[in-house]
Computed example of a mutant assay.
Amino acid sequence: MARYTGPKTKIARKFGEAIFGEDKSFEKRNYPPGQHGNNRRRGKKSEYAIQLAEKQKAKYTYGILERQFRNLYDKANRAPGITGEVLLQLCEGRLDNVVYRMGISSSRRGARQLVSHRHITVNGELVNIPSYAVKPGDVIAVREKSKSLTAISDSLQNASHVYEWITWNNDKKEGTYVSVPQRLQIPENINEQFIVELYSK
């Protein structure tokens, strides 16, 4: 299963924000990586460099590699609506992301692992594909045998975010993907228009 396994803090420092979630190392060194850090002279970035950086940020944020991300873009491009907005909605609708948003895991990487290790069900059926596209009305739940997992309990206890497009029942440890989120409801700091411009070239 292909996924990014390299250093996370280095990538977060490159983009100047903790895109992988809470990161104590990033907070300590909140400046670009490399030998000279803040002192390095950086010329004005080209339009292409800005667009490429935005695409890479989106890929790292959602834990998607290039081919999968390109396929999502092609799908968004064919769909009705604003391409950039649809692209982010498709990323948000991935099962690993929905598990993360529900608070079952404290990170997308952890959510991906929970799905892969068969701890999550969709409408009562076990699904172990992190990229599975969740549809409005789908019920995502923790498998009965996995409800006692410490990692899941700890994450749910510390979960504080509430999203309008998701409902969660802590007693049953299940939630519903109520609707596709609108762009204003997606909290990620991504300029999707740059990604569209990059792929449109």
Rank of each mutant, 00 (worst) to 15 (best):
T83S: 02
Q89M: 08
D74V: 02
G34C: 11
N38W: 03
G81I: 10
R109E: 02
S106H: 11
S46L: 07
Y100P: 13
L88T: 03
A76D: 08
R42S: 11
H119I: 00
S106Q: 12
Q113G: 06
R42Q: 11
K59W: 04
G124P: 06
R108D: 08
R41M: 10
R42C: 04
F69H: 02
R112C: 08
Y48N: 00
Y48Q: 01
E47V: 00
A79M: 01
P80Y: 06
Q35H: 06
V115D: 03
Y60H: 14
R108E: 10
P32L: 12
R112N: 07
R70F: 03
G110L: 09
R78T: 12
H119E: 00
T121W: 10
R118C: 10
R94H: 06
L88D: 11
R112E: 06
R109H: 00
P32R: 14
F69D: 01
Q35G: 02
G63C: 06
T121R: 15
F69N: 01
L114W: 02
D96Y: 13
A76W: 04
E66G: 05
G37I: 08
V115R: 12
E27N: 11
A53W: 05
Q56W: 01
Y60N: 12
K45W: 00
D96V: 13
V99K: 15
V86H: 04
F26M: 06
E85I: 13
V122F: 15
F69G: 01
L72Y: 12
E125T: 08
H119R: 00
A111N: 14
L72T: 01
Q68M: 11
Y100F: 15
R109Y: 01
R40A: 12
I82R: 15
H119Q: 02
G93Q: 12
R118K: 15
